[in-house]
Every structure is written in C-alpha cells, then in structure tokens.
C-alpha cells in the first residue's frame, strides 16, 4: 500500500471515532435533569418567554431532530449557541484554544526532553545505580498526581521564593501581545510567547514565559514518567540488536553508536505512544488549567459544567475528540512515513 492510500484509509477510520464520541456525549448530556432556560430565568418566567428561549436553543424539537441539526451544523463549524450567554460556542472555544495549545506544546517539550534524556541514560548504564535511580524517578513521576505537583511548585516558587507567578497567562492588567502586521495581513496566533516574539516585544515574552514555566513543568514532568520508561525499554532492546554490536565491532565510538544508531531506532515506537499520551496530556491540561487559572478549553469545560451549559460542554467534547483524532492521524501517518513496514 502506498503512503497516499494509507493516509486515505486512516482518515476514513477517524470519522466513526468522532461520530461515536459525539453520539455518546449527546445522549449523556440530554439525560441531565434541569432545563437551562429555567435556570437562566431563575424559575420566574412567563410561559411565552420560556417557549421563545427553548425554541431559540432548539430544545422544543424531538431528540433525533436536535441530533441531526447539531450534526449538520458541525460540518459548517457551528457548535450551537451557549445556553448561558447565547454566544456561539465555536467562537468561545476557538478563543480559548491557543491557551491550551501553548500549555500542551511546552509541557510536551518538557516531557519529551526529560523522557529521552533520562530513559537513554538509564538504558546505557543498565543495572547501575544511575539506572536504578532513573527507574525510580520514572515510576515516581508517573504516579505523581499532577495537581499535587502543581500545588507544591506554586507553594515553593510562587509563595515562598516569590520567583514565579502562580496563575494566569500574563501579569494582571497587562495587554495581550499583538502579533505582527505586514501590510494588510495581521498575524496573531493567540500563543502569547509566539505573538510577543512576532511583535518583537521582549518584556511581554519574558512575562508570558514566566507564567508558563510552572504549569508546563508540572504537566510535562508528570507525563515524562511514561516517556522515561518507554525510551529506556526500547533503548535496551535496540542496544542488543545485531547492527549495534556490528557498529561497536567496527570500532565506532560509544557515543556515535548510542546516539547515532541506537537512539534513532529506539525512538520509533516512542512516536506511536505519543498519540496516546496526547489524551493523557489533555486530561492533565484540564487539571493544570484549573489550578493555574489558565483560560483554556479545560477550564472552560469545568466552568460550563457548573452552569449545565449543554451546548458548551458538548462543543468542548466534540472539539477535544476532533483534536485527538487529528493528532492520532498525524502520528500514524508520521509513523508510516518513518517505518515503511507499517504500510504492508
């Protein structure tokens, strides 16, 4: 099978995944007791106004019609109106997505760097004290509740040492970095670190990085536990492979053998695991965003849950499902590209 056919089949397989999640969540949320229109008017409302509110949200239609409407809207990027503030949910989600993306990207970087460094360190010194320490650190990080680690960091670096802020994305009252305007084109990513670089604004960059350090370290370190273990195990297997022995026998330097030959091959299976880690990363992001007051998708979800905002909850879930499907797809394709055997 060529790479193109593989990609097409993989894309087609992604659709049922999103569809199933959408149906499950749609039905689950409709089971919820309570009418958001009644909640909105705090139960004192004349029947006419209630009927108008219900019809504007489509609540008066039969369930299957609501489902079909929602599903068709989805293709046009329409996730419905929020049941709390009657604003389009898709716009609310898109405005919060950059915060989540920025957190997830930097956490992922921390996880991969720590994971690969410690994992390969342990494998190359197999059985030594260093290896033992690496194993313990791996299990410890993997078991550490992400919210507990966050609280410890906030307490030490935010409260006691007062080095770093304990929440938010920018200092209170600071203006959001504006990005770059070239002629009539305006580039603004919503990732504050990127936008401040684009705008050439050093103080903003420093400020956004300072706000990111603690949350990204918290989430990244907890996720790195998995990477440490996988890198170590794969590296151990690769180091036993014939071509590594052959490279050693030819008198290549140990560094060249380990980092030039073994590591590259050992990292191949790590790539597939990244896809699954992404779901873990998003679970962690919900907790980390809540903890560090980062206005991302996770905190949006938690906030809206308290108001029984069906459409917003559903929108956030659909968005996360599509995001995960896209990442899984991308990683599978990357893997198929890196390792042609997958396509056989």
């Amino acid at each position: 099978m060529g790479l193109r056919d593989y990609v097409i089949i993989r894309v087609l397989l992604t659709i049922p995944l999103v569809l199933i999640l959408l149906s499950v969540v749609f039905l689950l949320i409709r089971v919820l007791p309570g009418n958001p229109c009644l909640l909105k008017f705090e139960h004192n409302v004349n029947p006419q106004l209630l009927a108008t509110c219900e019809s504007s949200l489509g609540l008066n239609k039969p369930l299957y019609v609501q489902f079909v409407d929602y599903f068709l809207g989805l293709f046009r990027g329409n996730l419905g109106l929020s049941m709390v503030d009657f604003q389009p949910v898709s716009a609310q989600i898109l405005s919060r997505f950059p915060a989540t993306l920025e957190l997830v990207l930097y956490s992922f970087m921390v996880a991969v760097i720590v994971g690969i460094l410690l994992g390969s360190l342990g494998a190359t010194r197999r059985g030594s004290v260093t290896d033992g320490a690496v194993k313990v650190i791996g299990i410890l990080l993997y078991s550490w509740p992400v919210f507990f680690l966050g609280l410890i960091f906030q307490l030490i670096f935010g409260v006691y040492l007062n080095w770093l802020p304990t929440g938010g994305r920018l200092c209170a009252g600071c203006q959001v970095p504006q990005g770059l305007t070239i002629g009539s084109v305006h580039i603004q990513t919503g990732l504050y670190t990127v936008d401040s670089i684009l705008a050439g604004n050093l103080p903003d960059l420093v400020d956004s990085v300072r706000h990111l350090i603690l949350p990204a370290l918290t989430l990244g370190l907890v996720i790195s536990g998995v990477f440490i273990r996988i890198t170590r195990t794969n590296m151990l297997e690769t180091l036993r492979a014939d071509y590594v022995t052959a490279a050693r026998a030819r008198g290549l330097k140990d560094r060249t053998v380990v980092y030039g030959y073994a590591l590259r091959n050992a990292l191949l299976p790590v790539v597939t695991v990244m896809g699954l880690q992404f779901a873990l990363l998003l679970s962690g992001a919900v907790l980390t965003e809540t903890e560090f007051n980062i206005d991302g998708i996770g905190r949006f979800l938690v906030d809206r849950v308290n108001f029984l905002d069906y459409t917003a909850i559903q929108g956030a879930v659909v968005f996360i499902a599509i995001l995960i499907a896209t990442v899984a797809l991308f990683i599978d394709i990357l893997y198929a590209y890196l390792d042609p055997r997958v396509r056989l």
Binding site: I29, V31, L280, V317
Partner: peptide, 23 residues
C-alpha cells in the same frame, strides 16, 4: 472494538467528569 477504541482514545478525566456531572 471501534466503540471501545473511541473511548480509549479520549481523555479519561473529561469522560469521567461528564458522567459524574450527569448522574
């Protein structure tokens, strides 16, 4: 397999959160 794989791929905390909120 398809149904369970969909659930497997989804962030567990988010799924659990919705179930706890609903029930």
């Amino acid at each position: 397999t398809l149904i369970l794989d969909s659930i497997y791929a989804f962030p567990s905390l988010v799924f659990a959160l919705i179930i706890v909120i609903v029930f």
